[in-house]
């Protein structure tokens, strides 16, 4: 039996730079989880549809590629399904997915960095347009050329950062996570997180300086 009172409503996501904020009724979630554990596959699909946009969005911002982000999201949901029998509800599903997706993305970025070092692989202008892969499909097809250029340059600049610098920057700037929470998520001291954020922004500003000059 689930003993969650009606007042058990938790803020599960920190408002991000884009103003993302959502409240999740933990009681509803607990009921849904119990139903999924009892074999309700449709319930799990509903849970995935509810969280997938956020998970894919986070993974896309972290790895910079929509297709890879979808693969990471898929893996995160498979892990969630495997973990459900022992899921104690210490954190909400959203928090669990947030943490798992971030860790999967970090592992992915580290593997990619290692591959680049081992095989002298460099992403070039021939690689897929970042805007095509990460852009919002609902946006105007005749989108601004400056925005396209800025997105390409941003992805290139983000690749110049270390995995930690990039992760800290994305989690702080795009996701709006406080530095203390980022430290807890990555297992780093807040001072170290501050240092990574500072280095990341210094590098990005230097890399994007000419883009800034062109932009209004």
């Amino acid at each position: 039996m689930i003993a969650v009172t009606t007042s058990d409503v938790a803020l599960i996501d920190t408002p991000g730079a884009g103003g993302y904020s959502r409240r999740m009724d933990l009681r509803e979630e607990a009921v849904l989880l119990e139903s999924i554990r009892a074999g309700d596959q449709a319930g799990f699909e509903a849970l995935m549809r509810q969280h997938a946009p956020r998970v894919v969005g986070l993974a896309t911002r972290l790895v910079g590629n929509r297709h890879e982000a979808e693969d990471l999201a898929q893996e995160a949901f498979l892990r969630l399904h495997r973990s459900l029998p022992g899921f104690r509800g210490d954190s909400s599903v959203a928090t669990w997915l947030y943490r798992t997706t971030t860790r999967l993305a970090i592992d992915h970025l580290r593997r990619e960095a290692l591959k680049r070092r081992l095989f002298f692989f460099r992403q070039t202008d021939d690689d897929p347009d970042p805007l095509e892969t990460v852009g919002d499909p609902r946006s105007d097809p005749g989108r601004d050329l400056h925005a396209r250029e800025a997105m390409i340059r941003l992805q290139a600049a983000l690749r110049k950062l270390s995995v930690r610098q990039r992760t800290v920057f994305v989690l702080r700037h795009h996701e709006g996570l406080p530095l203390q929470e980022i430290g807890a998520l990555l297992g780093l001291e807040t001072g170290t997180v501050k240092a990574h954020l500072h280095r990341a922004i210094t590098t990005l500003r230097a890399e994007l300086a000419d883009v800034y000059e062109d932009l209004p």
Partner: peptide, 24 residues
Amino acid sequence: RIPAMADPDPVVATRIAARVSERL
């Protein structure tokens, strides 16, 4: 001026859910 990357639309969510269900 750093461009934002929006969350994908719900079509992506449906696609992911279908893929995961298939794998399961």
